[in-house]
Computed example of a mutant assay.
Amino acid sequence: TTVLHSYGNDGLPSAEVTAFQAADARLKYQKARIEYDPKGCARYQGVAPDGQLRSEPLLDARSQPICAKNL
């Protein structure tokens, strides 16, 4: 028998996903995705209307960069 454990937030999007969705709604870059910089901070990256690859930090609800806490 397999025992499943619920951690209470299985269906909730992460801070990165929430910030990505907001940035994507605003910027609408093609091939948009979440990338991470060398410091472990999440970034919205995609191809801008001018054809250039662009990136900007993903920010949390307090307008702070979303970074891995262990880096």
Rank of each mutant, 00 (worst) to 15 (best):
T1Q: 14
E35Y: 10
Q21E: 06
Q52F: 07
A32C: 06
A23M: 11
L12D: 01
V3G: 11
Q21T: 00
L12W: 05
D60N: 15
E35H: 12
D60Y: 01
A19W: 00
T1Y: 11
G8S: 12
A15T: 10
C41G: 02
A48W: 01
Y44N: 05
A23W: 03
S6I: 04
S14Q: 01
K31Y: 04
I34K: 07
S14I: 00
H5F: 01
Y29F: 15
C67G: 03
R54Q: 12
E16Q: 07
P13G: 03
A61G: 07
N9A: 14
S63E: 14
K69M: 09
S6Q: 10
A61Q: 15
I34H: 02
Q64F: 13
P49A: 01
Y36L: 08
L58D: 05
L59A: 08
S63F: 09
E16S: 04
S63M: 13
G40V: 06
K31L: 04
K69H: 13
C67L: 07
T1D: 12
V3F: 08
P49I: 00
A32Q: 09
K39M: 11
C67D: 06
Y36P: 10
A32E: 06
P13A: 07
A23H: 09
E56N: 13
R54H: 11
Q64I: 12
D60Q: 09
N70Y: 13
Q30V: 05
P49L: 01
E16I: 00
D10N: 11
E56D: 08
Y7S: 13
D10G: 10
S63K: 13
A23F: 04
K39C: 02
Y36Q: 11
F20S: 00
Q30H: 12
A32W: 05
V17G: 09
D10S: 11
G11T: 14
A61N: 12
P57V: 07
P65K: 07
K31I: 00
K31D: 14
S55Y: 03
L53M: 09
A15R: 04
Q64M: 15
A15G: 02
Q30M: 10
R54D: 03
Q64K: 15
D24E: 12
T2A: 10
A25Y: 09
S14Y: 00
T2F: 14
A48Q: 08
A48P: 04
A15I: 05
S55M: 10
T1P: 11
P49M: 00
G51E: 03
S55F: 04
A25H: 14
K39V: 08
S6T: 12
S14A: 13
A22Q: 02
L12M: 07
R43Q: 11
S55C: 07
N70K: 13
E56K: 05
A15P: 05
R33S: 08
P38A: 00
Y7G: 14
K69N: 10
I66T: 14
Q52D: 12
P57E: 08
R62D: 12
K69Y: 12
G8F: 14
N9F: 15
P65E: 06
Q64L: 15
G51K: 02
R62S: 11
P65H: 03
L71Q: 15
